[in-house]
Amino acid sequence: MSPRGVAIEGVRDRLFEAAERLLAREGPGALTSRAVTGEAGCAKGLLHNHFADFDEFVAHLVLRRFRLLAAAAEALPAQAGLRTVAENMTAGALALLDAHGPAFAALALARPAASARIQEAWRQGEPGLDSIEASFAAYLRAEQHLGRLPETEDCGALALAVVATAHHLLMTARPGAADPRERLRGLVAALANRKE
């Protein structure tokens, strides 16, 4: 535990990382301010020194995850010309289904006040699914310019299909259900192998 009155470097990141560990280990039901600060090894009230309330913390936690996903998706256009289009799209799509994805989705849905803050942040321009979709479309257009994807392909529609499917799989994930990664791989393979 940190001594009272002693500043902790990177406290917000420390709290977010602790929350992610809790989500991965115990699911969204275990996430409380006390559990997060305990997992982070800091004073119980520290979270409230940095966030107005727990819903604000949850909103920032989810938005942070989307910023990381959007940053990873921004790297996708640089993959144009490397591996196959299907392999690149699959890798990009599977990144959206990381180990904590279903827990983050459940967490956002379970807390309406946090959800409202997330929606408002997206309206203000924070990266969300639309940013990720735009990066996927940019990647596909880059492949078109290289001649690896037909000019007739609607890159926006293909990007929407993949990102929307990943979102659907996240929102409908249930313990013990089939691995959503296999379903996403199947979608990308079907899109890649379809005939004009």
Rank of each mutant, 00 (worst) to 15 (best):
M1D: 14
M1K: 13
S2E: 15
P3N: 14
A7K: 15
I8T: 14
E9F: 13
G10S: 11
R12S: 06
D13V: 07
L15S: 03
F16Q: 11
A18M: 02
A19V: 04
E20N: 06
R21L: 08
R21E: 10
L22N: 01
R25V: 08
E26R: 15
E26H: 15
P28I: 03
G29K: 10
G29R: 14
L31E: 06
T32G: 10
S33E: 09
S33L: 04
A35K: 04
V36P: 00
V36T: 05
T37D: 02
T37E: 04
G38Y: 00
G38A: 09
C42L: 11
C42G: 00
C42Q: 05
A43D: 09
K44V: 09
K44R: 15
L46E: 08
H48I: 01
H48W: 11
H48L: 14
H50D: 04
D53N: 11
F54H: 13
D55Y: 05
E56F: 04
E56L: 06
F57A: 00
V58E: 07
V62K: 01
V62E: 00
R64V: 00
R65I: 00
R67T: 08
L69Q: 08
A70G: 07
A71T: 10
A72R: 13
A73T: 04
L76I: 12
A78Y: 04
A78W: 03
A80K: 04
A80F: 01
T84F: 02
T84H: 00
A86V: 02
N88V: 11
M89T: 09
T90R: 08
A91T: 08
L94N: 04
A95K: 07
A95D: 12
L96D: 01
L97K: 02
G101I: 05
G101P: 01
P102F: 00
P102T: 02
A103T: 01
F104W: 03
A105D: 12
A106E: 12
L107F: 01
L107I: 02
L109C: 10
A110H: 10
A114I: 07
A114Q: 05
A116D: 15
I118M: 08
A121T: 03
W122F: 11
W122G: 01
R123A: 12
Q124I: 00
Q124N: 09
G125V: 02
G125E: 04
G128H: 00
L129T: 02
D130F: 05
S131W: 02
E133T: 12
E133P: 00
A134R: 13
A134H: 09
F136G: 01
A137L: 05
A138F: 07
Y139W: 10
Y139L: 14
A142I: 08
A142Y: 06
E143Q: 12
L146F: 08
P150N: 05
E151I: 08
D154R: 10
C155K: 06
G156C: 10
L158Y: 14
L158H: 12
A159I: 05
A161Y: 03
V162N: 03
V163Q: 01
A166C: 03
A166V: 03
H167W: 09
H168C: 13
L169Y: 02
L170K: 05
T172A: 10
A173R: 12
A173K: 05
A178F: 06
D179N: 11
R181G: 15
E182P: 01
R183E: 15
R183C: 11
L184A: 06
R185E: 14
G186K: 07
L187Q: 06
A190S: 14
A192Q: 06
R194C: 10
K195H: 15
K195T: 13
K195A: 14
E196M: 11
E196W: 09
